[in-house]
């Protein structure tokens, strides 16, 4: 397994925040309905689904408030309609829309110092190697 990112420089703080948001949204989504993680979490870990979803929802809102206005605006356009706000780019392909991303956008070794979006689907991108 290759690490998802290998840049030695700092990741853009807003991208880091988006990644955290993405992970929290995934957890939140997975506790929806009677399928997915909810029954497993309840059976093996005694998790109260409603309580957990409320806690996660609050944390998501808290993190959303820390997004800069321009990124928040892009985020708000994407978030209501898509499960994934940030999508991985693997081997140059956006896993939000499965369209190739320009090498100029993702080829730089310090790609994570910028918050970039897929030109086709608009999702924020995170380059996995």
């Amino acid at each position: 397994m290759t690490p998802a990112s290998s840049s030695s420089r700092e990741m853009h703080p807003q991208l880091m925040l988006l990644l955290e948001l993405q992970d929290l949204r995934a957890q939140h989504r997975e506790l929806e309905g009677d399928e997915g993680a909810a029954p497993v979490e309840a059976e093996h870990f005694n998790i109260d689904r409603d309580e957990a979803r409320t806690t996660l929802g609050k944390k998501i809102e808290e993190l959303e408030d820390r997004l800069s206005p321009s990124i928040r605006s892009r985020y708000n356009r994407i978030a209501p309609n898509r499960e994934r706000v940030v999508v991985p780019v693997i081997n140059g392909v956006c896993y939000g829309c499965f369209v190739s991303i320009a090498t100029a956008t993702v080829g730089d070794q310090d790609v994570h110092q910028l918050v970039q979006s897929c030109e086709n689907c608009g999702s924020f991108i995170y380059v996995a190697s």
Binding site: A4, A26, E30, P88, A128
Partner: peptide, 9 residues
Amino acid sequence: HCRSLVVNK
């Protein structure tokens, strides 16, 4: 356990 974008499998 968790899901995270930092792994791709």
